[in-house]
Design a protein around this nucleic acid. Structure first.
Length: 571
RNA sequence: UGGGGUGUAGCCAAGUGGUAAGGCAGCGGCCUUUGGAGCCGCCAUUCCCAGGUUCGAAUCCUGGCACCCCAGCCA
């Protein structure tokens, strides 16, 4: 259909070479010096204690992206060393999210808990070397002995137990002879270290708890520091990428690997993602869910992968975002507008166009014949010739957007108003002749218009210049739909402090009933994405069923008119 | 005088001694049967500050300043 302009566009950023970042520099340098035998093997190590969010997506894209680009591998490893917080439900959601994002870990699905035996053996090795001891101090005492940020700690009175005694005690810890919290296994390093992580860190704690995978096989569980690096080593991870707060742990990470004399992975820290107008910590996200401030982990307002998915974000758009924000070591907060730009960028190329009216107002074409229905051709996607076209019904009674009519139009308002002309997309040019209102309330009930039969789309007369084009739907043929509009979850860029909840945006969710959509949408399936012309990108919600159509607004289209109005409001 | 880290535009971010990429946001304009998309242009004489080295410094040196992280038997 050549009468409508089809646009060409530059190719996706995703297809262009990856941008430079310091992690890639390190990897390339290691490849050049053959530090890891030419291998690149990364891992994504989530703790299954919550749902993944967009910050995890950054890490996933980094780790799996490194493996992809340097012909290496990336493992999925669950860091499940704390049975009191972890659940299988989270394992499943994490796997689904990583897969949905487009990454594949092959058969390399690992669990730190797979290594409990090995880790225990490693601990025995350390004990035998005199580099670890069983400590009977209570939690409180350990804290007191640890010293402070500015004062060194002091040695535990149990620090110099004999190897034999340590061996005996540790084995009995493992057998379950002692109650929770009564003893720990600690590394013997340096209580005077300026790095608190080196002040005899706890390796094992006693926890009589059922683990989601190992059941009751264990009652001692390894701490993060003890489990993580050794797990990396067991898997022969070359580059162990983690977030900045673990930089202080690196000396300990290295110490364990050196003492054990095993494969030495390299830990590299990068800055975690922060996003404006939302919160990202698992703790806060959990609170939002638990306190019912949102409808669940997959509430479309949540920055979780599942929330973004339900909102209509595509995996491509999230990967594009990850590429565009880059990877660095300086703490930063990315503008959510960039994320929004990424979905628009992706969906603009791919989402079929469709006409839908949010808040309908009836429009009657006085000079249009009664009972006639025309089938008009409409382009499915002006960005994609191959998407073809469809046919949409047109008749005497239509619905248009309330917002597309103003009785007293402001300057530069190009839409419909009394006596003015406007084009109905893919149809005719019409003129408004009368406004019928409710006498009591003044509410507009109906617009009376005439159409110009010469201007049917595609005819020579249709080339006539008219300021505005609006969307519409034929009243008799339209399907009813519910549309859910979402806005930013918070009203401020950085909702921090104890009262962060007070910045929740009361208008972040609006449910609009009685929307009218073109008939072809009746068969749309959950997850399908569309552009509602002039309004935004929408996707079919999973609540959609049979006759009941439900759409989520992913993001609005860029709206320069709204921007202009807002600007003039201010002056 | 605890340790670790970071400071390049409103937000991200390249830059690795040779005269400040790119994206988002913003601002103009063109084009348009989506006020969409696309296209064009503008947007850091200066890189936290102050000294120094050098023909030449965001890059090197010295000294400051600011911010973030660490005192879980969480990860």
């Amino acid at each position: 259909m050549e009468k409508f302009k089809l646009t060409d566009h530059k190719k996706s950023d995703e297809e262009s070479p990856e941008r430079r970042n310091f992690v890639r520099d390190i990897v390339e340098e290691d490849l050049k010096t053959d530090k890891f035998g030419g291998m690149v093997h990364t891992r994504f190590p989530p703790e299954p204690n919550g749902y993944l969010h967009i910050g995890h997506a950054k890490s996933i894209c980094l780790n799996f992206g490194l493996a992809r680009d340097y012909k290496g591998l990336c493992n999925l490893r669950f860091d499940d060393t704390n049975p009191t917080k972890e659940e299988s439900e989270y394992v499943e959601s994490i796997k689904l999210d990583v897969r949905w994002l487009g990454f594949d870990w092959g058969d390399r699905e690992y669990y730190a808990s797979d290594y409990f035996d090995q880790l225990y053996e490693f601990a025995l090795t350390l004990v035998r070397k005199g580099k670890a001891y069983v400590c009977d101090l209570t939690g409180d005492e350990i804290r007191q002995y640890r010293g402070t940020l500015t004062e060194p700690g002091k040695d535990s009175p149990y620090r110099n137990r004999s190897v034999d005694e340590n061996l005996d005690l540790f084995q009995r810890m493992r057998k379950g002879e002692f109650p929770n919290g009564s003893r720990t296994l600690r590394a013997k390093i340096d209580m005077g270290s300026p790095n608190i992580n080196m002040r005899d860190p706890v390796l094992y704690r006693i926890l009589h708890a059922t683990h989601h995978r190992t059941g009751d096989a264990w009652c001692i569980y390894p701490m993060y520091d003890w489990a993580h690096g050794q797990s990396d080593s067991i898997e022969k991870i070359t580059h162990s990428v983690c977030t900045l707060e673990f930089a202080d742990h690196r000396p300990l990470y290295d110490w364990f690997l050196d003492e054990l004399g095993i494969y030495h992975s390299k830990q590299i820290e990068f800055a975690r993602l922060n996003l404006t107008y939302t919160v990202m910590s698992k703790r806060r996200l959990l609170l939002l869910v638990e306190e019912g401030l949102v409808k669940g982990w997959d509430d479309p307002r949540m920055p979780t992968i599942s929330g973004l998915r339900r909102r209509g974000y595509s995996p491509e758009s999230i990967r594009l975002f990850a590429d565009r924000i880059g990877v660095g070591r300086s703490e930063s907060t990315s503008d959510v507008a960039l994320l929004e730009d990424c979905v628009r960028d992706d969906l603009n190329r791919r989402a079929p166009r469709v006409m839908a009216v949010h808040r309908p107002v009836k429009l009657v074409l006085e000079n249009y014949p009664e009972g006639v229905v025309e089938e008009l051709e409409a382009v499915n996607n002006p960005e994609d010739h191959s998407a073809g076209s469809r046919t949409i019904p047109f008749s005497k009674i239509l619905y248009i957007e309330q917002d597309d009519f103003r009785e007293n139009p402001p300057k530069k308002y190009f839409r419909l108003s009394p006596g003015m002309e406007v084009r109905l997309r893919y149809a005719y040019i019409i003129k408004c002749t009368e406004v019928i209102k409710d006498k009591a309330t003044g509410q507009i009930l109906e617009l009376r218009c005439t159409y110009d039969p010469e201007t049917r789309s595609g005819s020579p007369q249709s080339a006539r210049k008219v300021k505005g084009t609006i969307h519409w739907v034929s009243a008799a043929h339209a399907k009813d739909a519910e549309v859910r509009l979402y806005d930013r979850l918070f009203t401020v860029e950085n909702p921090g402090g104890d009262d962060w909840r007070s910045f929740l945006n009361p208008h972040s969710f609006e449910q609009v009933q009685g929307c009218k959509v073109e008939p072809g949408l009746a068969t749309a399936k959950a997850g399908e994405r569309f552009q509602f012309e002039r309004l935004g990108y929408f996707c079919v919600d999973e609540d959609s069923a049979g006759e009941k159509l439900v759409f989520n607004r992913t993001v609005t289209l860029r709206d320069t008119w709204a921007k202009m109005e807002k600007a003039t409001d201010k002056t």
